[in-house]
């Protein structure tokens, strides 16, 4: 009898142990993924990250919303913005919430362009002096 009880306890301990090891592995994987995501989204400068937090929208999300790859292509961005803004106008049966996100995405990218332009200007002035 004692032998069986010992066996049951052993198998039970093994199952729990295995599950625990798996959970730890998963936790490690998740934290690695989160770190990677943070590194890729935080590719911008400290200013850019501050703007992310302030506006509540990352550059990455803004790009996705406007469906553009390159934010320096101002003309293409404006075109997409105009189209999406009009299409989602409330008078035409659109949703104000989606229109808002389009507006905020444009705002965020304009802001990012400002930051990039300022950064490009700075080294030049340093070279001159």
């Amino acid at each position: 009898m004692a032998k069986y009880i010992a066996q049951i306890i052993m198998t039970g301990a093994q199952v729990v142990g295995r599950a625990f090891a798996k959970a730890v592995q998963q936790e490690i994987r998740f934290s690695q993924q989160a770190a990677k995501a943070r590194a890729s989204s935080g590719g911008g400068s400290a200013q850019s990250q501050a703007a992310d937090a302030f506006t509540g929208m990352s550059v990455q999300e803004a790009k996705q919303i406007l469906n553009i790859e390159d934010i320096s292509d101002v003309e293409a961005m404006q075109k997409k913005y105009d189209h999406l803004f009009q299409v989602n106008d409330r008078k035409k049966g659109g949703s104000l919430y989606i229109q808002s996100k389009v507006v905020r995405a444009k705002e965020r990218l304009d802001q990012e362009l400002d930051l990039v332009n300022k950064k490009e200007e700075e080294p030049k002035t340093e070279e001159k002096s």
């Binding site: 506006t55 509540g56 929208m57 990352s58 803004a62 229109q99 808002s100 905020r104 705002e107 304009d110």
Partner: peptide, 18 residues
Amino acid sequence: MDSIPGGLTSKYYKGGFD
């Protein structure tokens, strides 16, 4: 003045998607 986010165009919802 457009550079002030959410300041003047307050008709629109702020921030990105949840």
